[in-house]
Design a protein around this nucleic acid. Structure first.
Lengths: 346, 346
DNA sequence: TTGTATGCGTTATCAC
DNA sequence: GTGATAACGCATACAA
């Protein structure tokens, strides 16, 4: 009823005639007690309705089992799916997650990081792009980034370059007359830049006619539709009666393009092949299932947490050996062939 | 370089020749110090590079500023969007969030709740459906649920009934020959049941020919496509040459239906009107923008946190007055008219 | 196997 | 306005 004050080790100790230490040991090293005494304490816990207090434990042990996360938003499926997978590793590693939404605001994110540090988090996973990795590296706490600039910190990334090569070579195999890559402006330091690089390199190496179209496509359906419409006009002007293989930087944008074509022609014309990137739900839910390069988000998430856990454990040793160089792990994406490249039966 | 041990109030006290108490006051009640002394301490903080330790503060004060969240998954946009908005209230209320993914596993969720409680969270927001509200109510900590069974706990919900009425009346205004509602099996205790109820009541009240189709549509695109295909066959058989107004329980499913029709007819036939629910991105990104009932997710999230904060504050008073009855707040959804009901120009 | 004493970094309660 | 001291609840080195 009323908020009776909490039961502590002291209460249990008194009740069982053991010392606080023994009670503590019951939780942290039960084997050091006789089975009989374990039972006695166990019974007492139930009797007194004991609830553990991990805050006190943290203060005493220094181990919070907290990991801080800063994610730009959860509006993009890529991030929400990634967060889902990261949080789900609780079952494997037992770490709890304090989550902040960055929203691209650098100053806010700095505040969030300070707040996280004040809670004695043991490590941090960063998905937002704002704060330079050099600054992150100075925080003296294990950090792993995912799919962002990562020169000075550990990271896990999709092999974007390889993904682009897979996408491009698929289009090439279909003997397109021209290959086109559509993307938003992307800084070279970002892993995602590999999509542009991979496309270019493959085309050049195989002497394929190609074009890279870089245009800000925006974050709303309306703006991407407007921009993509311009791009499409341009393409139709430049390459009439040619078989066009288009590699779009994301499924969302690929879907916009597909819809424009579909609304214009009532179908996807035979001289258009489209492939996206991400394998996000929209690629399946589209009017025609869209071929795509599937990011292995579950694996990326697992590798990130796993890498972080390794480093956090290292720090708990008596004589920790810090990393000489940041580790960068690559996860290979998977080519997923669907109807926008493999023909479409009306 | 090496992990020099942390700077504490003690160090600052020694450095400034004040007592620990004064340092503490500098943070919690600075006005009680002279401006001059504030400056001295402030300088010392910078000099010594002090980092605050909120864990110690929690232990001493009992206030964690933690809110626990259990969300079923982040795969469904509804949840990820809601979580996004909830986390974003940090800027307003300052509470930090510990997040767990429930995945519909009742036993796991019980463990998560225990874990959360052990971290002395001050309140909890529950979006998952597994644990009965009666059990939640017994946890003796403020709880607010969102869009789930909420008999014994506080909650914030969309006014599903009103939303259904809005959707149905829109279809009715378009003088459909028959109104159809498609939904998955939904327990009556869930707020979402109001969608079925609202549809039925409106149709009956206005003596409209109608049918409610309840069928498990599944969680994958493939299964919903298969089920929806059956349903569509059924509808085409039963109501040939009639104008059909179809209210689908979610945008995702509405999109599946729309795609089936579009692939079959190359357009949305004139005798079909479709309206979904949620205003999730897919409703905009669809081959034709789908009319829908927009849930005000930002508002729902804000109201939930706000309601929780009120109760958490109440508990901190000397003589807290607990709620006699759980509060249930309704947020009215918004009708969004797009091309699937307002005519579509090819 | 069990107990004692001390520490973790704050806040809270009194005094002055 | 400032300080001494006792919590807060648990972990751990050292003894026994």
């Amino acid at each position: 009823m009323a908020q009776k004050k909490r039961v502590t080790f002291d209460d249990i100790a008194k009740y069982t005639n053991f010392s606080k230490t023994t009670i503590s040991r019951y939780f942290n090293n039960p084997d050091s007690l006789t089975l009989e005494n374990q039972q006695i304490i166990s019974d007492a816990l139930v009797k007194l309705d004991y609830k553990e207090n991990k805050v006190a434990r943290i203060l005493a042990s220094g181990k919070t089992e907290f990991i801080g996360i800063i994610v730009p938003n959860l509006y993009l499926r890529y991030y929400s799916e990634m967060l889902d997978q990261i949080l789900s590793t609780y079952e494997t590693f037992g770490y709890k997650f304090l989550v902040f939404i960055g929203n691209g605001n650098e100053e806010s994110e700095r505040r969030y990081i300070q707040e996280l540090l004040s809670y004695q988090i043991e490590g941090m996973i960063i998905l937002s792009h704002t704060i330079p990795s050099r600054e992150l590296a100075g925080l003296s706490i294990p950090i792993v980034t995912i799919e962002r600039e990562d020169r000075f910190v550990c990271s896990v990334n999709t092999d974007n370059y390889m993904g682009a090569v897979q996408a491009t070579s698929l289009l090439a195999r279909h003997k397109c007359d021209v290959l086109i890559h559509v993307n938003s402006p992307t800084p070279e330091e970002r892993p995602a830049y590999g999509r542009i690089q991979g496309f270019r390199d493959f085309c050049k190496e195989h002497h394929l006619k190609h074009q890279v179209i870089i245009e800000e496509l925006g974050n709303t359906n309306e703006s991407s539709q407007r921009q993509m419409s311009h791009i499409l006009n341009q393409i139709e002007m430049n390459y009439p009666n040619q078989k066009k293989g288009i590699f779009v930087s994301s499924d969302t944008y690929a879907n916009v393009l597909l819809n424009l074509l579909f609304r214009k022609y009532g179908t996807l014309p035979q001289d258009y092949l489209i492939i996206g990137f991400d394998n996000s739900p929209v690629s399946e839910e589209a009017i025609i299932p869209i071929s795509t390069i599937g990011q292995q988000i579950e694996k990326l998430a697992y590798e990130a947490v796993s890498m972080l856990v390794t480093q956090m454990n290292e720090r708990k040793k008596r004589r920790p050996v810090p990393l000489k160089e940041p580790i960068h792990k690559m996860v290979t994406p998977i080519l997923i062939r669907r109807e926008t490249t493999e023909g479409f039966l009306e």
